[in-house]
Design a protein around this nucleic acid. Structure first.
Length: 194
DNA sequence: CCCTGATTCGC
DNA sequence: GCGAATCAGG
């Protein structure tokens, strides 16, 4: 498999959309995520921005200010329909992906604008949970491992009780969907200052 | 252990 | 230019 124009195009598109290298590789087929990452680097569109949203092994990046590089020209795809999707209330906690994009448009060194703290659980997050709970593995307590979602479902006093059991993401106790609701800012609980 | 991207270096 | 191996982190 070589890098056609089409494949490169898809790569650019997906990378621009914030898709992970592995996902892009999977979509393209015939390449590994390493290949994708390597290509991304060679194309010079490595950094989605200065945001080290996740991996961020790129710490040794001085990011020289005065760079006489006529490159930053943004290239919006004309074909792609613009996505206005501006959620009036999208808590950062529930939507990791958009966050990286937010960081992308905010100058580094600048604190993020105060997020409208949602007092209630995000409907989207809840919907997501409902969805994944269909796929949940319904593990029992003893079946839980270090990397199974430990989100309890149902009433412990009844037989209808189980743990999500889906793969956890990164060191978190829950799967991604449950992390979304678990990390929801506390609504009426007072912050207890020790 | 799962995942992420970054970098290196033989090809 | 390519990408597997490796590195670095969550």
């Amino acid at each position: 498999m070589s890098w056609n124009d089409e494949r490169v195009d898809l790569l650019k598109k997906m990378w621009g959309e914030g898709q992970s290298a592995s996902q892009i590789a999977k979509e393209l087929g015939g390449v590994t995520r390493n290949a994708v990452i390597g290509k991304v680097h060679r194309l010079g569109l490595s950094n989605r921005n200065g945001s080290g949203a996740s991996g961020a092994a790129s710490e040794a990046k001085p990011a020289p200010a005065a760079e006489a590089k006529p490159k930053p020209a943004p290239k919006p795809a004309p074909k792609t329909a613009p996505k206005p999707a501006a959620k009036p209330e999208a808590p950062a906690e529930a939507a990791p992906a958009p966050v990286s994009r937010i960081k992308a448009i905010i100058p580094a060194g600048q604190p993020l604008p105060p997020q409208p703290s949602a007092n209630e659980i995000d409907p989207e997050a809840l919907a997501k949970v409902s969805e994944i709970e269909k796929k949940a593995k319904r593990l029992t307590l003893m079946e839980l491992t270090e990397r199974t979602c430990k989100w309890p479902v149902g009433d412990p006093a009844t037989e209808d009780f189980w743990f999500c059991g889906l793969p956890v993401q990164a060191g978190k106790p829950y799967c991604e969907a449950h992390v979304g609701v678990a990390f929801q800012p506390m609504s009426n609980r007072r912050d207890r200052k020790r």
